[in-house]
Design a protein around this nucleic acid. Structure first.
Lengths: 306, 306
DNA sequence: CAAGCAATTTGTCTAGGACAAAAAGTGAGG
DNA sequence: CCTCACTTTTTGTCCTAGACAAATTGCTTG
């Protein structure tokens, strides 16, 4: 029997918990308690990896490891249940519509999905489409993936098709006189791009000039890009999967290498509980983004007239 | 003065060199030799981080750390220069055209680039566009990045805009009766998607049904996706950056978990020197892909008539 | 009930050693 | 001259175990 055994790096990749953390938990809490191979290196059984994933998920929701790790499997599952119960209330008709959209993916009908989405785009307009379709849909997929009702490859298909829809929609927007100039990107280790595309759609709609640089830009490169493009604003996106702990330090570092006149906007589900920071503007919603844009414009009208 | 000081994690993020490697190099080679803050923790000056990035870039081109780290700054820069001299010969007029396209990027004229590319697409048709524009352009950018004449952020902008163009072009293709069904994806640690998009364009043009799953699918998930979608073919792409020696093992593993009736096609610059392997079809050019598709069809006409 | 302080929790860093996997070097035989 | 097998060197990852700071919680006092 091949109980798939994971090396410590495999577990790190799979769970997002660093090697240091894995070893420290073992020392402090006695879990995970991997076996050892012939070289004395840790090999984690499947089951422990599963439990680690579950724990990580709950931690991302705000629970602390000290409570989670000693808890029984049943207690953990109960927490997951509870959480899904207090899911935000939503309009029932809307929920049905989202479920219908996701069913296209589950039934592997890529074409049907794209057509249905195109219709919604036409019906809701870009902003409504992003806010009321793409965003909740992305959230649903994340939840479905968490509770195992979505396969990895289904999530990949969803992501790929949705990225296409968004990019296509963006390129269809009118282009005229545009300002401010906004660089859109993410930091290394943050490969999720859908959030960036949503912001790009919103900002482009509001006549900003967006420069999409894709994901995973080293900080120094972001700074170089900002001055090379004479960007007014650098906008970053952090997904829930990104280690929240690292975000403030990252932002501070970036703020230091960025020209002082360049704005730094940060959005995405990962910044929900971000504390305030000098020179960094957190965007908690798309309305925030639109507001920030309006604020920027009023603040810079005077300047540009000089 | 604020010589921006990086912590070890910041350097890890920015250079892609792990903390372990950074500490080991310090121990073994005496470089990098960071300062220490009040807690005795490493703080890397800007300059050392720059040098580390340069070294990393040369390592990605096949140089070994033992040679690079003791070398002088001049020697390193010379290596970078040398690299660019042995560029392959090409038709002069074509080279000029490519240079003109890349100049849009260098001048940060995203819009101009997109328009010029759209024109070329209209002029050359999809297949010619992919073969004679996108492919050589991508290669040029890779070379330019290696010899330092392209900044990282320029390469990011190029990649992002080109992906958009390709995806848009693909979605504009007519959709009719389609077979075979082809899953397009890449393995974990292989994040490059442009190669996949080029193949998708070619295959879609030839009336195959492409299922794009994005990049970085775990092998087991590829297999699940193949059977869930009843795919006839799984097509993978490997870039030059992917460690070549890992490829045969990976393919063998994937071949084992894949249904025997599912074809496994492998393309991209990374498979140029791949030795033959049971049940794996290497594609060295777009013509190869078209030929493979034709072969598949002749082989399966008989079957489908049974 | 709020504010400030102390205790606890938690993650990251440090040090140097061990070892396996990859690459380069070496030699024999076709 | 090339190729295969073997040895040596290079290189990265993993190991232990301790220190400490930042974040969070709990307690006390006004």
């Amino acid at each position: 029997m091949q109980t798939n055994q994971f090396t410590i790096s495999a577990v790190e990749r799979d769970t997002g918990l660093s090697k240091d953390v894995l070893r420290m938990w073992e020392r402090r809490y006695g879990f995970p308690l991997p076996e050892r191979d012939s070289n004395g290196e840790r090999t984690y059984p499947n089951q422990q990896v599963e439990r680690l994933r579950l724990i990580k998920r709950l931690m991302d929701q705000g629970f602390r490891p000290g409570k989670l790790i000693p808890a029984s499997d049943e207690a953990l599952n109960e927490l997951v249940q509870q959480r899904s119960k207090k899911a935000p209330l939503r309009n029932e008709a809307e929920v049905d519509e989202l479920v219908a959209l996701l069913n296209f993916i589950k039934q592997r009908d890529g074409l049907g999905y794209q057509q249905a989405m195109q219709q919604r785009l036409a019906r809701q307009g870009m902003q409504g489409f992003v806010q009321d379709t793409i965003a909740p849909l992305t959230r649903s997929v994340g939840e479905a993936w968490e509770d195992g009702s979505f396969e990895v490859f289904e999530e990949h298909l969803f992501t790929e098709l949705t990225k296409r829809l968004l990019r296509q929609a963006i390129s269809a927007l009118p282009s005229g006189k545009r300002s401010p100039r906004v660089i859109l990107t993410s930091v290394p280790e943050e490969p999720h791009v859908i959030g960036l595309l949503m912001v790009e759609a919103i900002l482009t709609l509001e006549s900003a000039e967006c420069i999409p640089l894709g994901t995973q830009m080293p900080l120094l490169e972001i700074a170089r890009a900002a001055s090379a493009h004479q960007a007014d604003i650098v906008a970053l996106s952090f997904s829930t999967a990104f280690p929240q702990r690292q975000i403030p330090g990252l932002l501070q570092q970036l703020r230091m290498v960025l020209p002082a006149t360049t704005g730094l906007w940060v959005g995405g589900a990962g910044v929900a509980r971000l504390s305030k920071q000098e020179g960094v503007l957190p965007l908690h919603s798309f309305d925030d983004a639109i507001r920030a844009l309006a604020d920027w414009r009023t603040a810079h009208v005077a300047v540009s007239k000089n």
